[in-house]
Simulated assay, not measured.
Amino acid sequence: MQIREIIRVIEEKNAETILLLCHHNADPDAICAAFAFARLLKQVKPHVRVEIAAAQGISQLSKHIMKHIPITLVEEPNFEKADILVLLDTNTIQQLDDWAEKVKSSKAPLIVIDHHASHPETEKIATLCIADEAASSTCEIVYRFFKELNVELGKDEAKALFLGIAFDTRHFVIASSSTFKAVAELVDHGVNAEEALSILSLPMETAERVARLKASRRMKIIKANEWIIALSHVSAYQASAARALINLGAHVAVVAGEKGDTLRISLRAVKEFYEKTGIHLGRDVAKPLGEYFHGMGGGHAVAAGVNGIGDVETALKRCWRILREKLKFTHN
């Protein structure tokens, strides 16, 4: 059992302080998984101090969720005092921004719990990697840990896990049968589904709306075989903008943004694109993009991200080049 491997690492280190880390602008899956996992660790190892931190803060929706679930975050985690570091919903240390080097230089064992494809560079520095692409979310993996240990879920933990799963599956649109089973069991633990889902319905901020509109205005449309590929750029909300371009009709959307020397790229695709072409955005596009821009990239088959150093024009050209070559291969 995977949770037993985690406990083994904790016991071998005789850990007193465990630091749980979430990616920058942490989404509901990240913070809810961290919260539930922290509660689980406290039940299994009551003496252990568990802290949760998110690089560059959390998303607006995550802040809203914190009004309904007692999640506590530390703003400046002490990496030197941490006996174990755990990355949740974070498959590259580059997603930790300024904390990346602290993690890399830390002598504490590193554990990764994620539902994205594991990144080779992360695997090199991690003591233990638990990556399950079949899981809908990191929250679904954490729920599995509770079941493996036969630990009773509290109402707050159940609600947090439900919210994380609901968010990452787009309100269960892309959920599998195992995900629905997990959600049904969480409801049996006292989660009011209707009430919980309403928490995720946070009105979109004006800045995000503007970013989506700018992305659509700047969009370059490329027709490749039967696929419509949209390339665009905005300074913020790249992931939201990419989702918006998919909703407008693109099969694949790539939205880049730069802040100083830092480059961020969000990629999204419809499920049909992956099923027919076999092109996995995280493995086949984001990973090589991350390497090219001296950063890291990864993610799911239909949702991925890249962090690196460069400019948006070069990024979009490089991304299209990779996609074009992959599409030629699949077409042939």
Rank of each mutant, 00 (worst) to 15 (best):
H280E: 01
P203E: 07
S62L: 06
G190Y: 03
G57T: 12
S136I: 09
E313F: 07
L267I: 06
P70Y: 01
A215K: 10
R283A: 09
K276V: 01
S178E: 15
L316R: 06
L128H: 11
R268L: 03
K276A: 00
K276F: 00
C139D: 03
R218A: 12
W99D: 07
E185K: 14
V48L: 13
S106L: 06
A224F: 03
I246V: 06
K104Y: 04
I165V: 11
H23R: 00
A166S: 15
A158R: 05
N91I: 10
K259L: 02
G154A: 02
F167T: 13
L248K: 01
E75F: 01
G290K: 11
H119Y: 07
I111H: 07
Q2R: 11
L153C: 11
R4I: 15
R268F: 01
N25H: 06
K102I: 01
F180T: 10
E272K: 08
F329A: 14
F37T: 02
S240E: 14
R209Q: 13
V142D: 14
M204A: 08
K220G: 06
T90V: 03
L248N: 00
E313K: 13
D311K: 15
C22A: 10
I265D: 02
P28D: 02
H331T: 03
A82Q: 13
V306G: 07
A33N: 07
L163G: 02
D83G: 11
M296W: 02
S105G: 02
P28G: 02
G305H: 06
A175S: 15
K45D: 01
K13H: 09
K214M: 10
A182Y: 01
A108F: 05
T330D: 00
H24Q: 04
D98T: 12
H189E: 14
E75P: 00
K63T: 07
L200A: 05
T122L: 14
K326M: 01
A108C: 10
E157T: 14
V9A: 13
L213R: 12
L281A: 07
Y292G: 00
A158N: 08
L197R: 06
W227L: 01
R243I: 08
E226C: 00
V270F: 00
Q2H: 13
M204I: 15
